[in-house]
Nucleic acid binder design. Sequence first.
DNA 1: GTTCCGCATGAATCGATAG
DNA 2: ACTATCGATTCATGCGGAA
Lengths: 292, 292
Amino acid sequence: MFTKDQIKNQYFVGDCKDILLNIEDDTFDLIITSPPYADQRRNTYGGIHPDKYVEWFLPRSEQFLRVLKKTGTFILNIKEKAFNGERHTYVIDLIKALKDQGWIWTEEFIWHKKNTYPGKWPNRFRDAWERCIQFNKQKKFNMYQEAVMIPIGDWAKERLSRLSEKDKIRDISAVGSGFGKNVSNWLKRNMVYPTNVLYLATECGNKNHSAVFPVTLPTWFIKLFTLEGDFVLDPFAGSGTTALACKQLNRNYVMIDILEEYKIMAEERLAKAVQLELNVIGQKKVKSNENN
Amino acid sequence: MFTKDQIKNQYFVGDCKDILLNIEDDTFDLIITSPPYADQRRNTYGGIHPDKYVEWFLPRSEQFLRVLKKTGTFILNIKEKAFNGERHTYVIDLIKALKDQGWIWTEEFIWHKKNTYPGKWPNRFRDAWERCIQFNKQKKFNMYQEAVMIPIGDWAKERLSRLSEKDKIRDISAVGSGFGKNVSNWLKRNMVYPTNVLYLATECGNKNHSAVFPVTLPTWFIKLFTLEGDFVLDPFAGSGTTALACKQLNRNYVMIDILEEYKIMAEERLAKAVQLELNVIGQKKVKSNENN
DNA sequence: GTTCCGCATGAATCGATAG
DNA sequence: ACTATCGATTCATGCGGAA
């Protein structure tokens, strides 16, 4: 068994079914992951056939159930593919099977993708949404709703959507400062709780990795279900988007994936992000000096 | 058995399970409906318990399967409720059961609701989406994708969302005129195919009727899956939103619902819509004269 | 004739209270 | 313990009246 210090902010290479055996019960506050969809990532997990998907998933989710705290949450980002002109049922079968395994199906969030690739088939349109299914161990779980409040009305929605990646980092960096706090206090009065639909853009332009989900997606759920210093697990971590979100939000992460090259990719991304943030802080200092 | 002329644009009062027995096989090009959700509309359908929902639905969908043309489509607008702190599975159970009944589960559209029912709870956010599940009898079905193309870019989406009911009617009325055609030709070049997510507001505040779904919802599916003169069925018609959409689009409708008062309500709505449209056309003529 | 403000209105959901 | 009813919560929308 690993201690918490040994797993803190580590990326493990291997099948999560095996790696997790070394991690104690009730370790994580949040498990969030986008597992390999059926028939995808054929080269890594062997391209699980849709009909075998539930069977493949259950021994792994059994471990998730064990290592998740009683007050913790499991978010599963998944979407069934069209198979033979029809939507396959492996996702809804999985929901039923996870309930049988002891999970509570609390909610189904929708990720409404803002920008999807244009495309057209004779019998269907572009698929612009995915499921983010929430499971819990018990009815009472930790949820910090204030952390994801959004500005009221359309005027604000417009502004928020225009925030560039740099602006977001600036915002995060400002959290500790008095100015940042004042702004957020002023904003609170114009804030409302969000709904169970997330309207987020897909990440594009990052050529190095096939972006599984945009960093804003895990960011949102991490804010909603954890506090600083909490432990977050992504058992199908890929290029480490969840780790990136954790780093920005001061949460501890444990990443697992089966390919060594994913780990390398993730570490490069993390290093690059840290560098970018340092640059932004550097620019701020320069500006501040100019103002004086 | 009724003839097509006998059922054309009629509103029948009764349980669709019984009424449909009088209608021939392969009659409809589209069945679109929003059935009473479990534990809702207690006064009319007796508030079906979630656990009994599938059992209640299947004999009715058996009739739908029979009266739908082989190239036709069935759109089911539904959403599971939170039950005992958890999402109930009756909707996904229904999908499985309908597949067993012989339906093909082609697609699941999402209706992303712009305005949702308010409320705040410790464990969940407001529910802002519903399922519009598409079923077919065979892999090849009629689909007219060009009919629902949308203007490109956000500026147009904004404008479109602000269209009032009067503007919509004006727009529809303009279809036949040369001016309308020119506009739509000009627009075509800036049009793209939509996705499988519909972002629409619910209609509320209309005092006369509790709108089940906004008229834009059936309108969209009717355009997508039927041509002028085709036959559309709504077996849980309520206040006749589907009929209204059919009337505006020159499709033939057959409405069924269990309460006489719904029928009366629907007929009033239809009459009012026709009157409103006449007024708008009248105003246009006045304006046109002024310009000359 | 516009624009602006106030108001009622929802396919909701939870927790407490009552039988 | 299990079920039925009621109050509290909350926000985008469209209507009507007012400036």
